[in-house]
């Protein structure tokens, strides 16, 4: 177990270094010039050149990247070009809100998606199944800003059940988490449905029924745990999708997380923040996958550590 985790962490470090490189290359190639953003339109060529030198942006690419990487290894994420604050500070103040949103969204998508999938599979081809699959189709295909605004309109404006925006209490969390989780719920309900249908045809389900177990027990104790196995790996991948969703959802609901931070930074080519947020996102994806693999290990006794 320990060697397995060590190996995975080692792999993760390589992945993260790779990601810093790719992101840095992309930002370097983007035609927008961060220095112009800082200096403003009316700045003289001399001022611009000074700022460029201050930030070290006049250096050749590989030197810039090397400087960034060596600072990073010492735990220095750099300072924001625009806000002049340490990137670490900015992320630290905003990360909890985003993590909370993400946990809420994962809970929403799993509860909604898995329940819908199980019901659909058990009531295969019934009206219930068809209705649920239409709902899941909407979840998969509707853009998140549309879902977000619709939910806001119905549940906040018309019904007044939840606040329109902001952060702080559980009721603030419900709508953003639902919006972010709805897409995943759509995916999970479809995957869970087909996974369940597959499992329900397996021989051991017939054995369980031949033992005289009740239908509920056959489904909940024998079918569902087996149907979950392929889903678990997906949850790790899902965190990556959340990272892009978070930018949209946080804007719609005014949620003070790293999504908003990233969005502002991208508009102003604030490279240290973009790099910082990308790294945080990458870390959470890598971590999510590691956790999913370890969970799978406990759920499926056939998996051996490799």
């Amino acid at each position: 177990m320990t060697t397995y985790i060590c190996r995975r962490v080692f792999e993760a470090l390589l992945i993260l270094i790779g990601i810093t490189f790719v992101t840095y290359v992309l930002l370097y190639l983007v035609p927008a010039d961060p220095v112009r953003q800082i200096a403003g339109r009316s700045a003289t060529a001399e001022t611009v050149e000074n700022i460029r030198r201050q930030l070290g942006l006049h250096l050749p690419f590989y030197e810039q990247y090397w400087n960034y990487l060596s600072a990073l290894v010492q735990g220095n994420f750099g300072r924001s070009y625009i806000q002049k604050t340490e990137v670490v500070e900015l992320i630290r103040s905003r990360l909890p809100a985003s993590l909370l949103l993400m946990v809420g969204a994962i809970a929403a998508e799993l509860i909604l998606g898995l329940t819908m999938g199980v019901i659909s599979a058990v009531r295969r081809n019934s009206a219930t199944d068809q209705v649920l699959m239409v709902v899941s189709f909407i979840g998969v295909s509707a853009p998140q800003f549309v879902v977000g605004i619709l939910l806001l309109y119905v549940f906040a404006v018309l019904l007044g059940w939840f606040p329109i925006g902001g952060y702080g209490t559980f009721s603030h969390l419900v709508l953003p988490a639902l919006t972010l989780g709805f897409l995943g719920a759509g995916w999970y309900s479809r995957m869970m449905r087909s996974s369940m249908l597959n499992v329900l045809e397996q021989d051991f389900i017939r054995t369980a029924r031949a033992k005289g177990l009740s239908k509920a027990r056959v489904i909940l104790r024998h079918a569902v745990p087996n149907a979950l196995l392929p889903i678990i790996a997906m949850i790790g991948i899902d965190i990556g999708i959340f990272m892009s969703g978070i930018v949209v959802v946080e804007s719609v609901f005014g949620w003070p997380g790293i999504g908003q931070l990233a969005w502002q930074a991208i508009q102003r080519v604030d490279i240290p923040i973009i790099m910082g947020v990308t790294l945080v996102a990458a870390c959470s994806i890598v971590l999510g996958n590691l956790v999913a693999d370890i969970v799978a290990l406990f759920v499926d006794p056939r998996i051996k550590l490799r």
């Binding site: 021989d203 051991f204 759920v299």
Partner: peptide, 24 residues
């Protein structure tokens, strides 16, 4: 019928490799 199955009439199947729940 649930109390008949397994209680009064038990059944075993052809494929021992797949007839048992792999995660229990």
């Amino acid at each position: 019928m649930q109390s008949i199955r397994g209680g009064e009439i038990a059944m075993i199947f052809q494929e021992p490799m797949t007839s048992l729940n792999p995660v229990m």
